[in-house]
Design a protein around this nucleic acid. Structure first.
Lengths: 212, 212
DNA sequence: ATGTGATGTAAACAACTGTTGACTTGGCTT
DNA sequence: AAGCCAAGTCAACAGTTGTTTACATCACAT
């Protein structure tokens, strides 16, 4: 037959195993950080042998880089969906999102987990910078801010808020952790408008996505 | 003599050694996290033998707890200084502050570093919660928010922004890292007012600390 | 000066870390 | 059915980890 009778998937499938390792590694790295996560933890949870990590990813560092690459893609995809209108909603979605698995979002968490490696660290910083740039370009076309550096600073502040919120949610701080995506939208709207628009927020301040 | 001829301090001083270990540990734990920091790193940087960590703090975990305790005290002290008027300035000071050593602030960073220990974790969460409560009580007396849980959520969002900003600054993200305390005050003012006051920010919105 | 307890050191421990090489097993081709 | 290579396992490796034990040394009271 060549396939499992129950699941229909082959018992030996390199792609599937590789993907499984990646999935587990993402969760563990995001939740516990790089140093606190052991390759045996990952392999055991994935149900495969430790040696396969080195076979498919060369090293623990390589596996982490692959996870980071996934986070980059995922973030780019999420950022591409934002129509330039409702940034706060997109952020709330990203912060509260479950990335298809049920746990906390992972993507933003991975972005601030660090191995010691110089190259990986640079990669991580680049993503953060690019994301903040996109944030600045999308949400901040207001003429109030003269200095482009000022705008960038404020965009990074919004990014910092998103990341900090994600972290505190992952820590289990209540009521922040308990809050749903809907609960977060309004406060985040106020935050983004406060930082980026530097002024009052009215209901019809959002163009194109507000209620009719 | 009993003292060093140069420094005037005794060559064997338990209190001094203990303090030295604490100081180094705070910096390393804050910068690299719990798991990535080894007791030998700490002892070497402090210039003493590794065994002294276990003598003075029982274990690595005990040393970490001591660091966390320091952070708690420091934060309580900083929070006590805020006269209830200018919260954003206090936050900016805390985010950009150097805690007397020159490096990034440590205190807020320590608050999100985690060992695996359950008891320590609970301690960490308690501090965060109390700090957010104080933030809510101090800055949010506005009648706009009916639900007290809503106010708490928003206060925790502000805390999240502060912590996230600290983390991104520690990561070396520019221009956020380069920004001085003065540079951060205004954007943070807008952020706090946006989240907690939910409305426009005017120059004379601050009571007691604004320009005459 | 001298013993005595506090302070610091050195070396070793057992457990755990990432990694590797030799080996076994499965699935496909022929 | 046989063979062959990819996919997976096993066991060991060298180094590192936190911790402990036995030993040395300084400071101070006597």
């Amino acid at each position: 037959m060549g396939t499992d009778s129950d699941t229909g998937q082959r018992r030996r499938d390199a792609a599937r195993t590789r993907g499984l390792l990646l999935e587990v590694a993402r969760r563990r790295f995001a939740r516990d950080g790089y140093a606190a996560t052991t390759v045996r933890d990952i392999a055991d949870e994935a149900g495969v042998n430790v040696a396969l990590i080195n076979r498919y990813f060369d090293s623990k560092e390589g596996l982490f880089e692959a996870c980071l690459g996934y986070a980059v893609d995922e973030l780019a995809r999420a950022a591409g969906d934002v129509p330039r209108s409702d940034v706060p909603t997109a952020i709330a979605h990203q912060v509260a999102g479950t990335t298809a698995e049920g746990g906390p979002n992972q993507v933003l968490l991975l972005l601030l987990r660090s191995s010691g490696d110089e190259r990986t660290e640079q990669m991580r910083l680049d993503v953060l910078r690019r994301f903040a740039e996109r944030l600045a370009a999308t949400a901040g076309r207001q003429p109030d801010l003269p200095d482009p550096d000022q705008l960038m600073l404020r965009a990074q502040l919004v990014l910092a808020a998103a990341i900090g919120t994600t972290l505190l949610r992952a820590s289990g701080l209540q009521p922040l952790t308990r809050a749903t995506e809907q609960d977060l939208i309004e406060p985040l709207r106020d935050l983004v408008h406060g930082v980026l628009h530097n002024g009052p927020r009215r209901q019809d301040d959002i163009e194109g996505d507000g209620r009719p």
